[in-house]
Amino acid sequence: MIQLLAFYLFAALTLAAGALTILSRNPVHSVLWLIVAFFNAAGLMVLVGAEFIAMLLVIVYVGAVAVLFLFVVMMLNIDFAALRAGFIKNFPLGILLAAVLLAEVLMGVGVVQGGALQLGTPDGSAPVPAGTQNIEAIGAVLYGKYLFLFEVAGVILLVAMIGAIVLTHRERKDVRGQNIARQVARRPDEATVNMQPDVGKGVSL
């Protein structure tokens, strides 16, 4: 009974938060609703028995990705009127996207109902044999069966990261860099000197 209550709670909150993500007028509120949706989705994951995925969802999406979203959205100077404009123009495209997403969801439901995949069972019970921990099961698959693909994914991410750094990096000549080693090595007697300058000659401007 507790599971059922928790499921309906999390599912309803996920749906409501998802709807409010789209409907709220303020983009910052949208991101915050998105975070609520992520969090409740993590709750659903726990209910299915995938606690590792749930924690990763919170750590990666809520803890890192959404913070960056929030950063960007908060610092943009958003004109709310301009956001509303172009609704009619973009409407057909939006409908198209929505139709594609709906078709995907329906196909997903159909596949699970058909029982073609071994990913999960329709009644929500975890396919992992009892007694195996989530992390061990995922680790065994990732580092055993799919080791090559996993490593390739890592290399691709590394290349993407280096690419992003190279593209956005610019050498700035007009700022003085901080040399921490030199700053730490400085001693008082080399930092301050007592001078006895003549009147009007003490400063060079």
Binding site: L32, I35, A42, E51, F52, M55, L56, V58, I59, V62, G63, A64, V67, Q133, N134, I135
Partner: peptide
Amino acid sequence: INVGLLYVLAVSSLGVY
């Protein structure tokens, strides 16, 4: 829970908000 340490990480990453 099995993922106790990850839970700590997850919850502490919520503190930013």
